[in-house]
Computed example of a mutant assay.
Amino acid sequence: MKTLVIVTHPSIEASVINKRWIEELAKYPEKYTIHELHKAYPDGNIDVAKEQQLVEAHGNLVFQFPIYWFNCPPLLKKWLDEVLAYGWAFGSKGGDNLKNRKVALAVSAGATEENYREEGKYRYTLAQVLAPFEISFLYCSADYRSYFAFYGIEAEPGENEPGAAVETSASKLETNALAYVNFIDSL
């Protein structure tokens, strides 16, 4: 079965990493379904039944998003809250649609990897920041397979204008995009 990649990025056109990942995945339509939540639901109103059917029609599940305030974008949180419902994703009566399904994350972190260390600027690793996702998927009896990350796309606060992007080499982008596909294929 194909892998469903749920992309949540409110400004994908301005993205460097997430957009490049989508471009790479799009080369393999027989392997991946790319589902962009902001394009599917510009008004933020999620069709829960449609989303559940989409998940059921696929094998592995990957959530791709930029780290926002050490969490996911709000639309993905809403998706998780509404789609992973009692009786469908978990519960004593049914609720096994994620059981043993391989689930992973693909995240772009603005800060450098050095900042995501216990001795780093933010004092927490990216694995620690993403722990609520792991716990949620384990709660739904999914087979959580960790995460793929790209670090350091933004300048440090005070170094440039707020939110300014760091220049990323084309070869680094290409290498990372290929590694992303390999990560998904190895789930």
Rank of each mutant, 00 (worst) to 15 (best):
E13P: 00
L178W: 00
A85N: 06
Y144G: 09
E174N: 12
V48I: 15
G152E: 04
G87E: 14
A14P: 00
Y124D: 03
T8R: 00
F150I: 06
D81T: 13
C140F: 04
E154G: 00
G120N: 02
S186R: 10
V5F: 02
V83T: 11
P73F: 13
A177V: 07
D143Y: 06
P10H: 13
Q53P: 00
R20H: 09
F137S: 05
A49V: 14
E119W: 08
F148I: 01
H58F: 07
V5D: 04
D185L: 05
E30V: 00
E51Q: 15
A89C: 11
S146R: 13
L75N: 11
L61T: 03
K99I: 01
K99S: 08
S141R: 12
R101K: 15
I46L: 07
V166G: 00
G95K: 09
L187F: 12
Q128R: 09
G158L: 08
N71M: 05
G120C: 09
I67K: 02
E118L: 12
F65R: 03
G163P: 13
R123M: 09
Y68R: 11
P73H: 14
L80S: 00
G163A: 04
L37I: 10
D81G: 03
A109K: 01
T175A: 14
N45R: 14
I135C: 05
E161K: 10
L84V: 02
E23V: 05
V181F: 05
L75K: 11
A89F: 05
E134A: 15
F148E: 03
A165Q: 10
T112S: 12
G91Q: 12
K39Y: 02
L98V: 05
A127H: 09
H58R: 06
I184D: 02
N97I: 05
Y116D: 02
V62R: 00
A142M: 08
